[in-house]
Write a protein that binds this DNA or RNA. Structure first.
Lengths: 222, 222
DNA sequence: GGTACTTTCCTTACATGTACGAAAACTACG
DNA sequence: CGTAGTTTTCGTACATGTAAGGAAAGTACC
């Protein structure tokens, strides 16, 4: 496996393709035709190679997607001016990450990878941790707080995107619709009451509301 | 597609297998040998049928997994006594869901499905929404609050489980480790400071801490 | 019985990720 | 030049989910 920026070794068969070429071509396919069209075979022929040759530059398809995410983050997440006040800084940084990810639904398969450890997102992570510490949290609590924010953010995106994906691909009634249709108002009064509005409420973008609640709670606890 | 509890139609070729049999056999395979061993072919031969015959009782493999999750929830999530005080009731109900899911890591692929709309989990959802309303939130805010809690919960599980999965399957250094190794303390002081402890902090189970913060924030906002 | 219709089952075929092992292309050393 | 060692490339093979279309096994009406 070729290391991203390792010193060249002048031994062995000279490479014909590079990791950069692989990732670059993959990015082109994804942006032009969607992640669904990105297959190892397609990528290989596009590069003028064979599928198995790719595996010397990329561990597997999942790593390729992680690299694509990193690549995307580099372009979509640039440090900008953030509020000085700690609470607002935390909210703004998290919102920036969320917004970038939400605009790019194909990363869902990768989102679950680790925390968002893309090099280019780290600046925002720093802002979040720093904001929490500035408010008075210990470093430890601040890191935990960041993780809670990340769970919330990743969860929101993953759930929302896959739900939308499912809805689009099918015309049969949702499982949810079936469930709500058969609700017993005596046993589950609140859900029955919310029944009709549930669908609408679910569609709303309430990320920031929840984020603010979470941040408020984290700060109050510290 | 055979409906779960539709009135029998005495026309057409009589079915040889039922959805229940499919799900039941799938459950056995999963509990005995893990979700990795559950393939449509394996399932078919185990039942004494062919792969494509399964597709008349189950839309696709993903639906099968959703059914399995529902099945699991029915057994793992039984209504129990919860605290009367609203805040504690919300925390307890969410924690119960979280605990059940965390004990059953194979559902990760399904978790992203919808919100947890398993019939058998609805009681807990009801408790959460009801607790929030009891505290004084409008029904609308309560539903939004439940969704925030669900995002946080699903995100925590998905992220933690897949991270663990990745770690186990590989011996090469994590991407995270590589990133932290090359941190510039001038640009990202907080992260560099946390560097060594990050790994340990990540391993901790801080679900309930974050949950309490979120619930506190939701209640304070209402 | 015969024809039409319906539902379930099965055979075949394809696309995909990727494991395995060998071939190719180079350097280093004798 | 030849042999060994190293890295990259490639051909083949397999497991998997599932699409498409037809065969099988019943009922309903004549």
């Amino acid at each position: 496996m070729q290391q991203p920026s390792a010193p060249r070794k002048a031994t062995g068969r000279p490479p014909r393709i590079s990791r950069e070429e692989v990732v670059g071509t993959a990015r082109r396919i994804v942006t032009e035709e969607g992640v669904g069209k990105l297959t190892m075979r397609r990528l290989a022929t596009e590069i003028g190679s064979t599928p198995m040759a790719l595996y010397h530059h990329v561990r597997n398809k999942e790593e390729l997607l992680v690299l694509l995410l990193d690549d995307y983050a580099a372009q979509a997440l640039r440090p900008t001016a953030l509020p000085a006040e700690p609470r607002e800084r935390v909210v703004a940084a998290a919102s920036a990450i969320h917004q970038a990810l939400a605009a790019c639904p194909w990363i869902v398969e990768v989102l679950t990878a680790d925390d968002l450890m893309s090099t280019h997102a780290l600046w925002f992570v720093e802002q979040i941790v720093d904001g929490l510490v500035d408010w008075g949290l210990s470093l430890e609590r601040a890191v935990r707080g960041y993780r809670a924010i990340w769970y919330y953010t990743a969860g929101e995106i993953v759930v929302r995107v896959t739900a939308a994906r499912r809805r689009g691909a099918d015309d049969r009634p949702t499982y949810r619709e079936q469930v709500f249709a058969g609700l017993d108002p005596d046993e589950l009064p609140r859900l029955a009451q919310a029944g009709e509005r549930w669908e609408a409420l679910t569609a709303e973008d309430t990320y920031e509301d929840g984020l603010r609640a979470l941040v408020d709670g984290l700060l109050a606890a510290g």
